[in-house]
Amino acid sequence: MSQSINKSPVISKHEDERLSLKPYVYGYIISLVLTATAYLSVRHHAASTTVLVGLVVILALTQFIVQVFYFLHLGKETKPRWKLYIFFLMVSIVLIIVFGSIWIINNLNSRMTIPQQIQYLNSQDGL
């Protein structure tokens, strides 16, 4: 392997990600469309609340994936794909913490309100 002196030492042919304009344009335009769709649907209450909630979630998740792929370039690194693995680990843990907390607190809230507690005590003939 011959050693040749690199004339412009700052540009390295080994750079992981060769950027181009297209991904950014795609990402921007798709994000605009997704955002506008969500906004307009909610603003004009285009469907029932349940449907809108589902729609907003789907649009948000889609835009999330679009931006992570087009702006953050995830998935384009060469092996080993540490960034991707750590990303998936983070997503798993976030899902556990957020939905776990919501489940737990809703459960606690519904059982630990004062009227609920009085009702329970009455059904048990007191302590």
Partner: peptide
């Protein structure tokens, strides 16, 4: 740039789950 893109990603969720949901409920 990474930091800045990430902040917009977070904003997607704030826009959707805080503002849009807030108006719906």
């Amino acid at each position: 740039a990474l930091f800045w893109h990430f902040l917009d990603v977070i904003w997607i969720f704030i826009f959707s789950l805080v503002y849009l949901f807030g108006v719906l409920n």
